[in-house]
Amino acid sequence: MSVNVLFSARPELWPVYQPLLEKGLNQAGLNFHLATDIEPDQVDYIVYAPNGGLLDFAPYTRLKAVLSLWAGVENIAGNETLTVPLARMVDHGLTQGMTEWVVGHVLRYHLGMDQHITVQDGVWIPDAPPLAPERRICILGLGALGEAAARALATLGFDVTGWSRTAKDIPGVRCLHGDTGLRAALSQAEIIVLLLPDTPATTNTLNAETLALLPKGARIINPGRGPLIDDDALLSALNSGQIGHATLDVFRVEPLPTDHPYWAHPKVTVTPHIASETRPATAAQVICDNIARGEAGKPLLNVVNRDLGY
């Protein structure tokens, strides 16, 4: 019997993913039908992106699982018509891309590179940065992306603290959790990286109260989700000097409107949601591996906890 796989994403992605998915499914030894148009009651798996247009899963009565191409699932996790397992994208290509971006911007702040790149004023100020063990970094969120970034920074010798909702244990990283742990993590963070999911519990994690806990002049890096930060509170903290600089890759509204104050603020670096992209070759293999697991009766990997939203 054929396994019917529906591809539901932006049309321009189909010619990219089709040969990669066909290759992976063939390598898995599956008899399959992969297409962008299959009768709903015949679909076994949906390869899915929220911007592909599919919102109502009720007609897909034979559906076994939805396999997301995105790491973030906030746009689908609350869909009441989706009653089968939802797997988010955890892909080593995406993880490596995020790790490289985070490490790059942490090093940029750590070494004071902005001053030397943008300020060529003829003034000789030989201030050398501290060594990595003397720089305190905090990673908020220790999922696959956060853990990878924390490990990489710890390998470089940074003093790394990680915070998560529940207790974690990562060699070389001081792991804290819960409300008390969050306050402790923030109170010593010279550079803070946000890699939390977007859920009701994480909205405005950085707000006026929590920003005030950071050491004066702390730097913020947000490649996670826009709603993690209260924008007004951050702008106020930047203007007062409580926060020294912020590098922001994600926003509540994207593209970031041209009149948004972040664009013109001298203490904000805006990057256009490029911290990490899903890499089709590796993402397709993740999808195919999960379909093979499902057909073999094995548990799917990276299944979303619908109550928690990630």
Rank of each mutant, 00 (worst) to 15 (best):
A65N: 02
Y60S: 00
S276I: 01
N207I: 05
R306F: 00
V303D: 02
D230V: 07
P40V: 01
S187Q: 10
I139K: 08
S236I: 09
S240C: 09
I287W: 07
C138H: 02
K267E: 05
R293L: 13
Y60R: 00
G294P: 06
A218T: 08
K64G: 00
P171R: 09
T180G: 15
L6N: 08
P126F: 08
K298L: 15
G104C: 08
H265C: 02
P197A: 06
Q188A: 15
Q115G: 14
L20Q: 12
Y60Q: 00
L20K: 14
G217N: 08
R219E: 03
E100L: 07
V84K: 00
P133Y: 13
A28P: 10
A35N: 14
G217Y: 07
L256A: 09
T161Q: 03
A218C: 06
L20A: 10
I243R: 13
E147M: 04
A275C: 02
L238I: 10
Q27E: 15
G241H: 05
L153E: 03
H110I: 03
L140E: 05
D41C: 04
P133V: 14
L256P: 09
M1L: 10
G143L: 02
E100K: 05
H245W: 12
R279L: 15
N302T: 00
R135V: 15
G52R: 12
A208Y: 03
L196K: 06
A292N: 03
L25A: 11
T118H: 13
L238H: 10
L131S: 14
N4P: 03
G181F: 11
D249R: 13
I117Y: 13
G141I: 07
A144R: 13
E134P: 02
F7R: 03
Y48M: 02
A65H: 01
G244Q: 09
A283P: 08
A152V: 09
V5N: 09
P223T: 08
G172K: 05
P133D: 14
P130Y: 11
G178E: 11
P50C: 01
L176Y: 11
S8W: 04
A275P: 01
V16S: 04
E190H: 12
T180F: 01
P200N: 13
P255S: 05
K216D: 14
A246I: 05
A128T: 13
I46A: 07
P280L: 03
Y48P: 01
W124F: 15
R219M: 12
G29P: 07
L213Y: 06
G141K: 06
P299V: 10
R252N: 15
P40M: 02
V73P: 04
P223I: 09
N207F: 04
T61V: 12
D127T: 14
P200E: 13
I221K: 09
D232Y: 04
P133I: 14
A77Q: 05
D249Y: 10
L176F: 13
A296R: 15
V304H: 08
E74C: 02
R293W: 03
G104F: 06
V5A: 12
I117E: 14
T81P: 03
